[in-house]
Amino acid sequence: MMAMPDAIYGGHSGVTSSDKPLEYRDPNQSVKILGFWLFLATDMLLFGCLFATYLVVRTHTDGGPTARSIFDIPGFTLETFFLLTSSFTGGLSTLAMRNGNKKALVSWFAVTIALGLAFIGLEVHEFIGDVASGATWERSAFLSAFFTLVGTHGSHVTVGLVWMFLTLLQVAKRGITPITARKVFVVNLYWHFLDVVWVFIFTVVYLSGRVM
């Protein structure tokens, strides 16, 4: 690297300051974090529209399976527990990153990925069970909306798993640098965001489905 060039494409000087968390110190990286926050805001709207659709057609079961009849309490309770815990372990990987502890970072990533896989496994199992009992998404508007909303979350989680694994490889290879630190932070932002979405899924879909 050359000595102190101007910051990337922008006007601010590339001076890094040490009073900020590691991932924010390099302005080239912190602008990417802002960009990712903005992405999360749009993704939130995406889920908002799916929730809106679900809420509108929630009762449109066309004489087919209802929310009460297909939602399995132990199943979604366990899914919730796995995902909440994975959000915590993801947080611990951010902590390890900030402490410069590469080994802990890689381990917490591995734990988070394992918990995410368990969550996805349970969800796939739940979906397969539903489909086997005739509750397919072609059956009714309610089931279309249910599978699409929960499935969109599930596919987000799957993307997150692949992404986290790629980030893990990069950290293992390159160590904790301003760039990998930003990557770790961002993938965790995504992961926590998916946890929030899940909270609303178990509230609006599963719990409300059981009581209404």
Binding site: P21, Y24, P27, S30, L34, F88, G91, T94, L189, H192
Partner: peptide, 14 residues
């Protein structure tokens, strides 16, 4: 909870 404790919404650059 997620925003404050895990996502560090109160931190940032600028």
């Amino acid at each position: 909870v997620q925003l404050y404790f895990f996502m560090h919404i109160t931190e940032g650059d600028g």
